[in-house]
Each structure stands twice: as structure tokens, then as C-alpha cells.
């Protein structure tokens, strides 16, 4: 099964029903996409598939045949962190960091689609990402900062 992952063509040998998350982590070694719940309810495994953010744990690989998938590892450009990654580092907007991969994928998609999103819109867009450490407001601030560079 062929698809694009982070801009490069890949051929997967996993069964068609294998969750994309498992294929990414185990077959492709892309462990940046995290397993949080396996039920599509926490956002830790968010990936971008042809411009739509989906939970990779609930996406069987047959659904992404021929698609273009972007994971947290694919957000950087020319070896430089994505502006939202840089903003999160600058603002130290993470504590344990386990939610941050999915947050970054969601935030990068938001800034691409709605470059003028305000604080309320950023928060609303992240409502399907769970953060347990209480870093919510720092993350929103970081995303707003990244708008200028995205």
C-alpha cells in the first residue's frame, strides 16, 4: 500500500486494518505520534491527512492509501522547526510534553487554514486535544505568537 508520509513516498506492508498509528510507530519507526487512548478522544495521535486532522489510532491504513500524511516529525521545514514548534520551545509551553505532538499537528493545520485565528479560536480548535499538566494557556499563547511566522 503506497502513500506519502512527510513528503516522501512509502510502501506499507501492514494489514489493511492496522491502525495508522501502529503502522507509523512500528513499521516506519515514527514514534513522535503518541498513543494516548486508542479511542480517538485525546488527540495525542493527531496527524494531518490531505489537509484534515484525524486521530491516527482510529484510522485504518486502507483509508490513507494514496494520501499525504504529515506527522509531528514532518512539521519542520528545511531542518528548521515549524514556527509553532519554535514558539512552544520559546514559551516553554509544555510540561510532560506527551500531548504536544498532537497539539502541534492541530495548531499547524489551524494556522495554515485560519492564519488570523484569535485566542478563543485557537483554544476552541484545540478542544479535542487533552492536556493533563495544565499547560493550556501557554500553548494558546505560543500558537498566537507563531501566527506571525507561519
Amino acid at each position: 500500500m503506497e502513500l506519502m508520509v512527510n513528503g516522501s513516498p512509502v510502501a506499507l506492508t501492514s494489514d489493511r486494518d492496522t491502525p495508522l498509528l501502529t503502522a507509523l510507530r512500528d513499521e516506519l519507526g515514527l514514534t513522535g505520534t503518541r498513543f494516548g487512548c486508542g479511542q480517538g478522544l485525546c488527540g495525542a495521535c493527531f496527524v494531518d491527512v490531505d489537509g484534515t486532522v484525524v486521530p491516527a489510532c482510529q484510522t485504518p491504513v486502507w483509508q490513507v492509501e494514496g494520501a499525504s500524511v504529515t506527522t509531528v516529525e514532518g512539521l519542520s521545514r528545511d531542518g528548521e522547526p515549524h514556527p509553532v514548534q519554535q514558539a512552544v520551545l520559546d514559551r516553554q509551553a509544555a510540561q510532560c510534553g506527551f500531548c504536544i505532538s498532537g497539539v502541534l499537528v492541530r495548531a499547524a493545520a489551524l494556522l495554515r487554514d485560519e492564519p488570523d485565528a484569535d485566542a478563543d479560536r485557537v483554544a476552541e480548535a484545540l478542544d479535542r486535544n487533552l492536556c493533563r499538566c495544565g499547560t493550556h494557556r501557554r500553548i494558546v499563547e505560543a500558537v498566537l505568537t507563531a501566527r506571525e511566522h507561519a
Binding site: G29, L30, T31, G32, T33, R34, F35, T71, V72, E73, L75, S76, P81, Q85, V88, L89, Q92, A94, C96, G97, F98, I100, S101, L104
Partner: peptide
């Protein structure tokens, strides 16, 4: 001083860092 966290670059850039990333 507000030194930046030493562990955050790995976590923000999606590099292996957590226990479940061990292979």
C-alpha cells in the same frame, strides 16, 4: 535563571524520548 528545559526539544520535535519509544 530561567534555563530552558533540557528535555523539551526532543518532545517538541517528536524525537524518541518516552518509554514507549524504546525499540
Amino acid at each position: 535563571r530561567s534555563e530552558p528545559r533540557l528535555d523539551l526539544p526532543d518532545k517538541v520535535l517528536g524525537r524518541p524520548r518516552y518509554l514507549s519509544d524504546l525499540r
